[in-house]
Amino acid sequence: MATRITPGINRAASLELVRDFSLEMTGKDVPALLEARGHIPPGTRINVTFLGNEDLEMRVGAAKVVRELGFVPVPHISARRLKSEQELEEFLGRLQEVGAAEHIFAVGGDPARPEGPYHDSLAMIRSGVLHQFGVREVGLAGYPEGHPDIPDETLWRALEDKYTALRESGVNAAILTQFAFDTDPVAEWIDAVRARGITAPIRVGTPGPAGIKRLLGFARRFGVGANAMIVKKYGFSLTNLIGVAGPDHFVNDLAAVLAEHSTGNSHGLPSQVGLHFYTFGGLLETAEWVRGFTGGQE
Rank of each mutant, 00 (worst) to 15 (best):
N240L: 04
E87M: 14
N53S: 10
V224K: 09
F218A: 04
P117V: 05
G223T: 08
E285L: 12
H103K: 14
I46L: 04
S237D: 13
L216Y: 10
D161S: 06
P270G: 05
E168G: 01
Y163D: 04
A106E: 10
S84V: 07
V244D: 08
L69T: 09
V193Y: 03
E16S: 11
Q272T: 11
A187D: 04
R221Q: 14
G282T: 02
W189V: 02
N252C: 13
G61P: 02
Y278S: 08
T199A: 14
P207W: 09
P144I: 14
T239P: 04
L140Q: 01
L82E: 15
V60P: 10
E54Q: 11
R45E: 15
S262D: 05
S271Q: 15
F105C: 15
G8H: 08
Q96F: 09
R4Q: 11
K233T: 10
G295K: 06
I202V: 15
G108C: 08
E16R: 15
A187N: 02
L176I: 14
E35M: 12
E168A: 01
G8V: 14
I190R: 11
M58G: 08
E160S: 07
S14G: 10
P7F: 00
D149I: 03
A287Y: 01
F293Q: 09
V48I: 15
A32L: 10
S14K: 03
R80E: 05
P31W: 13
G211I: 09
R196P: 00
D161R: 04
P31A: 13
G61Y: 03
P117C: 09
D29Y: 05
G70K: 07
A174I: 01
G208E: 03
V135Y: 03
V107R: 09
S237I: 00
L51I: 08
E188M: 09
Q132P: 06
S262M: 04
V138F: 01
W156A: 03
V129F: 06
V30R: 15
T154G: 06
L17R: 07
K232S: 15
E145H: 02
Q297C: 07
F21G: 05
I9M: 03
D161V: 00
F280A: 12
E102Y: 11
P201F: 00
